[in-house]
């Protein structure tokens, strides 16, 4: 059998790393997104960062098992993993979709595999959202919550105390979104953004060498 050519179909050629550069997934980041220098981006599927999202230092976006989409004004805190390869190791085209205004707190894991986290949801510190889970809008997962693979969490649910659930009827989602926007304003001043570190290097333009002026 002849060896297949072009096995890495999903990564367009321009995104293949130059020799000596670490491999980064093809990244489509808004100019207003904040991507810290010590964040990690791995994998070959595309990663999208919408406007004003913040990726803290040491956060990890893993596109090895599917594409990652981060919505508007999301915050991914340090040590959080978005798009971790799940227990099944299944690879699908769409790994994780984070809606707008999602917060993924310190040390939380969102596994890949058509996982969706709805708008305004907070994934608490150290929580795990399993592969293929569908977390609704404006949910709160408290610290160390585990959402199993494929589980569906309805909108406005608070998951607490090792899996108990209740419905959040406070109606504060607009206020929370405003607070999130303010928080991002502050973070923008504190964390230096380096999205170009994860972008492919621009093609070097050969400078026309001018002949040195000859002394007459």
């Amino acid at each position: 059998m002849a060896p297949r050519k072009n096995q890495r179909r999903l990564a367009p050629l321009g995104c293949l790393p130059a020799p000596g550069r670490p491999a980064h997934p093809p990244l489509e980041a808004s100019s207003s997104a904040l991507l810290a220098e010590s964040a990690q981006l791995v994998g070959t599927f595309p990663v999208t960062l919408c406007s004003e999202s913040v990726i803290h230092p040491r956060a990890r976006i893993d596109a090895q098992a599917g594409a990652v989409h981060v919505g508007k004004r999301c915050i991914v805190h340090e040590r959080a993993v978005v798009g971790a390869v799940g227990a099944s190791g299944r690879v699908v085209a769409m790994g994780v979709t984070l809606g707008d205004y999602v917060t993924v707190e310190t040390g939380a894991t969102v596994e890949a595999g058509d996982t969706a986290v709805g708008e305004g949801t907070t994934v608490g510190a150290g929580s795990v959202v399993g592969a293929g889970a569908n977390v609704g809008k404006n949910c709160t997962l408290t610290a160390y919550t585990v959402i199993k693979a494929g589980e569906v969490v309805p909108d406005y649910t608070v998951v607490y105390s090792n899996g108990l659930r209740r419905i959040d009827r406070r109606g504060v989602e607009v206020l929370k979104q405003k607070a999130q926007a303010r928080q991002i304003d502050v973070l923008r001043r504190l964390i230096p953004s380096k999205p170009e570190k994860f972008m492919p290097a621009p093609p070097k333009v050969k400078q026309q060498q001018q002949p040195p002026p000859q002394a007459s």
Binding site: E78, T106, A179, R182, Q183, D185, V186
Partner: peptide, 12 residues
């Protein structure tokens, strides 16, 4: 990590 909250209209 230090805690943060809204304080006097600004996030601190």
């Amino acid at each position: 990590r230090p805690p943060g909250r809204m304080y006097k209209g600004a996030f601190t």
